[in-house]
């Protein structure tokens, strides 16, 4: 498995990145960790004449934790796992990151790459939707922000323009209980079904809940109705079943080696039930 030839660019700053992108349009792609892109290039399923490596671009590597949390696009899953402040402010980030790929891949795999690639198998997009994150995109016309919940259009199709670079993700410090539940065949596999859940508890009732699913459609699925089904309830079986039913109305899985559609829907329901139960127990 040998990739096709390409020109390699390693700009020192974002201006340099944008300049190459503008010059080459969709003949150019940025690369962060490369663990989604490089295998595709080696299989010659992606032909990229100009590759722009972001590793020398300053300002993409930081994690700041306060009432708002920002994570630079080049922050790796390994960084997320090791960052104590982040783990305590947004523990779902660590819980999810530990379930992504394997140790070596997590050293290289970045938040930016994971959210921007638009691969339905990636875990961060659903997680970002659950957290109602905002993505910062930088392009020739400057910066703009897009809600994670509005970003994904189809498999590998996002709101990002060819000349834009996703530079950071930002979300409010999550409240309440959390769970990232993922079923997969083995370490290194994408999800058969995965659910990201955050639940805010007020007394004995659920004040609000946010639910997003991974690898069950050609985009991540933020299920607003599933969250709404829990709000105001005591998260009893009836409420959970209502949330699951709402989620099932939103997903649209396809058959693959992980199983037929019927199984995926079943697994999605099971995984969501477990995620809700776990998040509720932590709320």
């Amino acid at each position: 498995m040998i990739p096709g030839a390409f020109e390699y660019h390693r700009p020192k700053d974002m201006e340099g990145v944008l300049a190459v992108l503008q010059e080459h349009g969709d003949d150019a792609r940025v690369i962060a960790g490369g663990h989604s892109l490089i295998p595709m290039m080696k299989l010659r399923m992606a032909d990229i004449p100009h590759l722009i490596d972001l590793q020398d671009v300053q300002g993409l590597n930081s994690i700041t934790v306060g009432d708002t949390i920002t994570i630079g696009a080049m922050v790796t899953q390994h960084h997320i796992i090791e960052n104590h402040a982040l783990a305590s402010a947004a523990p779902i980030m660590r819980e999810a990151s530990l379930q992504i790929a394997d140790p070596q891949v997590r050293y290289m795999g970045t938040v930016g790459g994971n959210v921007a690639n638009g691969d339905p198998g990636n875990d961060m997009p659903g997680l970002m939707q659950c957290l109602d994150a905002t993505f910062t995109l930088v392009g020739p016309d400057g910066e703009r922000e897009v809600a994670a919940r509005d970003f994904y259009e189809a498999a590998y199709m996002t709101d990002r323009e060819d000349e834009e670079v996703l530079t950071q993700v930002r979300f409010d410090k999550p409240q309440g209980g959390f769970a990232y539940e993922k079923q997969k065949r083995k370490i290194g596999d994408y999800a058969t079904a995965a659910a990201a859940v955050q639940i805010v508890k007020d007394g004995d009732t659920c004040a609000s809940a946010s639910i997003a699913m991974t690898n069950l459609s050609d985009t991540p699925i933020y299920s607003e109705d599933a969250g709404a089904a829990l709000a105001g309830t005591t998260v009893d079986d009836t409420a959970i079943e209502a949330a699951v039913a709402a989620m099932l109305g939103d997903i649209d899985p396809t058959e693959d080696n992980r199983g037929p559609i019927e199984f995926k829907r079943h697994a999605a329901a099971v995984i969501l039930r477990r995620a809700i139960a776990r998040a509720w127990s932590r709320a």
Binding site: Q183, R185, T192, R258, G259, P260, F263, H266, A267
Partner: peptide, 16 residues
Amino acid sequence: HDHWRIWKTANELGLH
């Protein structure tokens, strides 16, 4: 006996 085939077996036996 991967996950979905086991699920299918259980399903056909009415265990869901």
